[in-house]
Design a protein around this nucleic acid. Sequence first.
DNA 1: ATTGCTCTGAGACAATGTATCGCAACAGTA
DNA 2: TACTGTTGCGATACATTGTCTCAGAGCAAT
Lengths: 230, 230
Amino acid sequence: MTVWDRPEPPTRPAPLDRERIVAAAIALADEGGLEAVSLRKVAARLEAGPMRLYGYISTKEELFDLMMDEVHAEILPEEQPGDWREALRILAGRTRQAALRHEWLADLLGGRPALGPNALAVTEATLAAFDGLADLDTVMRAVETVSAYFTGAIRREIAHLRAERATGLSERDWQRTSGPHVMRMLATGRFPALAKVVHDGTDVDAETSFATGLDWVLDAVAAKLARPPA
Amino acid sequence: MTVWDRPEPPTRPAPLDRERIVAAAIALADEGGLEAVSLRKVAARLEAGPMRLYGYISTKEELFDLMMDEVHAEILPEEQPGDWREALRILAGRTRQAALRHEWLADLLGGRPALGPNALAVTEATLAAFDGLADLDTVMRAVETVSAYFTGAIRREIAHLRAERATGLSERDWQRTSGPHVMRMLATGRFPALAKVVHDGTDVDAETSFATGLDWVLDAVAAKLARPPA
DNA sequence: ATTGCTCTGAGACAATGTATCGCAACAGTA
DNA sequence: TACTGTTGCGATACATTGTCTCAGAGCAAT
């Protein structure tokens, strides 16, 4: 039995780690949305069998958790400005940018508690921005309120963006021209206020709208901070 | 061939309509979450074959849309108070209640544009609350900001609720006692602000926290309304 | 009575998440 | 160097899913 007869030894499987798995999953999600992420496809990208992944994660949900946390690394700003408003604006803006880069983030945001190291770091940064500005309760309320706002706003923005893309039109045009359902509804006269908005409302670009709403919320927070700790 | 020999005529299939389909789907979702909703199970509840549903909906997503809209019927208040703040508070509160009754709502909220008749009616009611109080742009911004807030807040609340239920503990206890991961993270000293919150923060019940944040946002809106239309 | 149409269900299909289990390569021991 | 235990991997399997196709069954119109 010469060397020539013997086959090459089986290639040892390429080493794997969570980082590579998550990267593959994110790539898939970026391309085809969350629903394009299947354990089989992720594994295929890594030239591994599906079952191999179960050494690193024990459920698909955990993979999503890891993806979430990975994106939080992108969100975390390098350094924080001293001004809390600016800090919050940056945090919110970076979250929004991350969601625009990874639209699937909108599907996960707020969906379950984010406890990964990067997510915790983001929370830490948010809390730190308020350090010394108010009592703990106020700070917590502030953080929760602001993030509830931008979480919701981002989700809506992405939802609209997808709807637009699905029809290939801007939403206003869509409502006006090819949204027969909505138009019929409006024509019933049962929604006068809505009709007025659709008719006369000006189309504000998403970023401005996001920023404006955020500023309002920050104003509200500012008002509570101003008051001395109870 | 007597009557006794002949079999009963095949029972004509029970009549179906979207209402019954949606009701069945909602029942399933209430019991087992969104993931428990499969076209097959819905159909089974109605003693029909799965394919029968495709006469009424053409995709599972459409079923979700219908479910969404059905719940919006629960959200829409019978009559609106004149005070816009109270109106918004009621709207937000009813949405929250609906989400507590139908937790799956949190998974859908903000996920895609809600254009069903009931959802439109809710939007109409929200807009109507601001009638005459400001220019259109301000009103739109107000509506979007407030609903972004409570959408996000509701989602987080449900997420926490589920996490608690999954461990059988309150989240604070969980963080403190059996969340080894979080505790280990906090012990690293990399998250001082977070650590302080977990240690010294008081646990506010969800409803109060929701209402407080909402009030802050409403304060912000009030401030903008006060300013005369530009 | 016959024809055509509409609806329905049976079956099929590919894809999915995950359990089970046998094997193959290595680590450690004699 | 032989042997053995352990670990990790993948082939296979399974139940479940959304949706397509297609043939038949009932009804309406001729």
